[in-house]
Write a protein that binds this DNA or RNA. Sequence first.
DNA 1: CCTATTTAGTTGCTTTTGTCAACCATAATC
DNA 2: GATTATGGTTGACAAAAGCAACTAAATAGG
Lengths: 152, 152
Amino acid sequence: MNDDIVLKIRRFNRFYLPVMNLYESSYLHSDYSMTESRVLYELYRRKECAADDIIRELRIDKGYMSRIIKRFEKEELLERERSKTDARSYKIRLTEKGKHMTKELTDKANQGIREAIRHVPKEEYVRLAEAMETIERILAAVPEDAQAGVRQ
Amino acid sequence: MNDDIVLKIRRFNRFYLPVMNLYESSYLHSDYSMTESRVLYELYRRKECAADDIIRELRIDKGYMSRIIKRFEKEELLERERSKTDARSYKIRLTEKGKHMTKELTDKANQGIREAIRHVPKEEYVRLAEAMETIERILAAVPEDAQAGVRQ
DNA sequence: CCTATTTAGTTGCTTTTGTCAACCATAATC
DNA sequence: GATTATGGTTGACAAAAGCAACTAAATAGG
């Protein structure tokens, strides 16, 4: 029983990995990597934040993040200014150009999914959405310490 | 409506990506990468096949695959012999050592998931499994040509 | 307040992971 | 029998990420 659910989760993971790769692959054909796209999305969503917020949210290396920010800034997708309350950190946010870019990227990704599911009968949409919501609800946010448990 | 499901799928993808990363992360702490682990699993499952079967199944570069095989062979996880029906290709299969290794890896991954879901109430297991099965059923195998549609 | 520690971010270096193109040998097609 | 396609190998390279040492600022403890 306990094992059963584990096997089903792993089966699902094997199934869903290529699906996700396909569904999110429009990024791979854009000028931005998956991680960069995720960062863009976070920036888009948050309006304004510190690099560290995103580092923790996406669990990426701070050196790596630093370079992503540098690139975005160079491309004028992002601007930053020193935080008034903490001089070590910066407030970062997308420029208008950055927002526009992100929106385009998102639209393209959405279009890709629309293509990919065109063979799915519309009657199934509700069930599919429900199933996804169920998984999200049950698995909820991954608890912080679950990470530590797995890390060797 | 059409857009609605697209947004929900993408939302789910954002949610599930870190979950999957976590759930499959035991591989990252083994001596094998995610891709190598997937290859091992395919080899385990298929008993005997050609490299090309796995290349197509997992959609990985043949050069990359060639090196993965070379590594596995060197570590005596895998053995191969020329195909009798096609002298260009090889029959490849796991050795006993390879099977054993793969099983250990799998067990470890399962254990990792067991840890990760320990906070999920058991009553939810059935619903979770159902939801996953529903998604698998509806999305079924990604049709070949959906790939072409998204590729650039 | 002064010292020790922690934290945000940067930089250089390295490794891991993967792609690309040219190539060889064999097989399939015409 | 010539041409083309296929399975696999190799070398060169690029992308993605991780690691560790560092700076500067903030915070905690005495």
